[in-house]
């Protein structure tokens, strides 16, 4: 094997494969998006149609439900590959397990989280979000949501060999989501109450960058344990 190996091509291949699987039959992409749409729509029925109350809780509702939708899809992030044996193949790829974990996290964000961000303004309209806050809702989700995929991947990798490990994973992952949730909602609230959202966005970005440093290595380590 003297040909130089293109790790970038392998990385792209894994991302493309996972996005395709997420949106094929039984994939997590459709599931997370429908859950997000339905769960947010339930709030006006539950809370009542008073526009001031809905406007006050809009950012929090959208962020919390996006977080739960993400959690719902993380269950299958590595488990599907573990069950059908393709995790063995992924682990033996010349890309290495850290690269594989990062590729799968990237694919998860693109296939599952990005569609949620696209429909978020529509749901914000339903919840009567103040008009000045829309761009900050989208921006806060764009900056903060990578941390959801990254931190979630650690939990998914740790529980990969546990049957019905979804609940255990929630217990592991949800506490880690708290900083992202606080700063994400804080940014939108600041924007809708004429405050300054930038400090919140900066902290949100910091959480995402920190997760980016840790998560691929932590997830790869957990997956290596699961293969034993």
């Amino acid at each position: 094997m003297t040909k130089p190996l293109s790790t970038a091509a392998i990385f792209k291949g894994v991302v493309a494969r996972d996005i395709r699987l997420a949106w094929s039959q039984g994939g997590t992409g459709t599931m997370a998006l429908s859950f997000f749409l339905i769960a947010v729509t339930l709030f006006p029925f539950g809370v009542g149609p008073e526009t001031e109350i809905l406007a006050r809780i809009a950012a929090g509702v959208i962020w919390v439900v996006a977080l739960l939708a993400c959690l719902l899809s993380l269950d299958r992030l590595f488990q599907a590959d573990y069950e059908d044996g393709s995790l063995d193949d992924l682990a033996l790829s010349p890309l290495g397990l850290v690269g594989i974990a990062f590729a799968k996290i990237t694919a998860h964000w693109c296939a599952t989280i990005l569609p949620l961000i696209v429909v978020a303004p529509l749901l914000a309209l339903l919840l009567n979000l103040p008009s000045g806050a829309y761009q900050f809702l989208v921006l806060s989700l764009l900056i903060g949501s990578p941390a959801l995929s990254l931190l979630g991947a650690i939990g998914a990798a740790l529980t990969v060999s546990v049957r019905r490990g979804g609940v255990l994973m929630s217990l592991l992952v949800l506490p880690l989501y708290i900083p992202t949730l606080i700063f994400g909602v804080g940014a939108v609230d600041a924007a809708s109450m004429m405050g300054n959202p930038l400090p919140h966005l900066a902290l949100l970005g910091a959480v995402s960058l920190l997760s980016l440093l840790i998560a691929p290595f932590a997830a790869a380590g957990a997956l290596r344990l699961a293969l034993e």
Binding site: L5, A9, I10, G13, D89, L90, P94, L95
Partner: peptide, 10 residues
């Protein structure tokens, strides 16, 4: 195809 790309990048 996806296995081949995973193992060789080609």
């Amino acid at each position: 195809k996806s296995l081949y790309q995973l193992m060789t990048g080609l």
